[in-house]
Design a binder for these strands. Structure first.
Length: 181
DNA sequence: TAGCCGGATTCTTATATATTGAATCGAT
DNA sequence: ATCGATTCAATATATAAGAATCCGGCTA
C-alpha cells in the first residue's frame, strides 16, 4: 500500500488528579516542559527527539508525533511505566487509551489539475484557493477522513480514526481521479 | 451583571507556495 | 569595512484530533 503513516495521535486518562508542578519536579526524562502561563499542559518526551506527551491536571493525556502504531504503543507503555514508578497510578491501570487521528501521505502517479479536480469532485465538497494554500482540500462525505491534494500528485490524508479509514478514503480519491482523467 | 457558550490557544505531521528575514557575497 | 544583491532558511498559509483554560460576546 502506498499510504504511509506520518503521524498518529492518541489519548487516554490516568483517572487521577495531578499536581503538575510537583510532577514537573519529580520527572526526569530527556525533555520536560511546563509553562502554565503559556499553556496549561505539561509536555513530556521520553526521547528527544521523539513523540510528545501532553498531560493535564485532570489526568487526561495526549500522545502525538508517532510515526507508527507501534511507536504510539511503546510511548504509552513507557509513559504509564513512568507514572507507575512515581506512584501516581498503580500497575495495570486502565487508561482507555485509543487512537484519535492518523495522518498519512500518499502519491498519485501523475500531476493533477487541481482546478479541474475541484469541479470533478464537486465544489460543495472541495476547497481550492491557491492564493491561500496550494493544496486542494477534499472532504468526501461519510468517509471519515479529509484529503489534501497537491498539483504534483502528492496527497495528505488526515482526520482518520484508523489506518483502514485513511487507506479506503485514499482509494476513493484515487478511483475518482482515475475516472475523471 | 452573572453565567454560559463558543472560539482560540498548544502540539504533532505530511504537503507546497509566498513571503520575510537573515546571512553571505561580491564589489566599491 | 560597508553597501546593494543574491541565496537560503524559516515562517505563515491550511488540515485533523485530543486535552483544559482563557476571553469575548450574548442572553437572561
Amino acid at each position: 500500500m502506498s499510504v504511509e503513516i506520518a503521524n498518529v495521535v492518541g489519548s487516554g486518562d490516568l483517572h487521577a488528579e495531578l499536581e503538575l508542578d510537583a510532577l514537573y519536579e519529580d520527572l526526569s526524562t530527556p525533555y520536560i516542559e511546563y509553562n502554565p502561563s503559556n499553556y496549561h499542559g505539561l509536555y513530556i518526551r521520553l526521547e528527544n527527539p521523539g513523540p510528545l506527551i501532553t498531560v493535564y491536571r485532570s489526568g487526561k493525556y495526549i500522545i502525538s508525533g508517532c510515526s507508527s502504531y507501534e511507536q504510539l504503543q511503546t510511548t504509552n507503555d513507557g509513559f504509564l511505566a513512568k507514572m507507575t514508578e512515581l506512584g501516581i497510578i498503580e500497575q495495570g491501570r486502565q487508561t482507555g487509551f485509543q487512537v484519535q487521528n492518523v495522518v498519512c501521505t500518499a502519491a498519485l502517479d501523475e500531476d493533477v489539475k487541481l482546478n479541474a479536480l475541484s469541479i470533478g469532485l464537486g465544489l460543495e465538497s472541495t476547497e481550492y484557493e491557491p492564493e491561500q494554500f496550494p493544496g486542494l482540500i477534499y472532504r468526501p462525505s461519510n468517509l471519515g477522513a479529509v484529503l489534501l491534494v497537491f498539483a504534483n500528485g502528492k496527497v495528505v490524508i488526515t482526520g482518520a480514526r484508523d489506518l483502514d479509514t485513511a487507506e479506503s478514503t485514499y482509494e476513493h480519491l484515487r478511483s475518482r481521479v482515475q475516472e475523471l482523467f
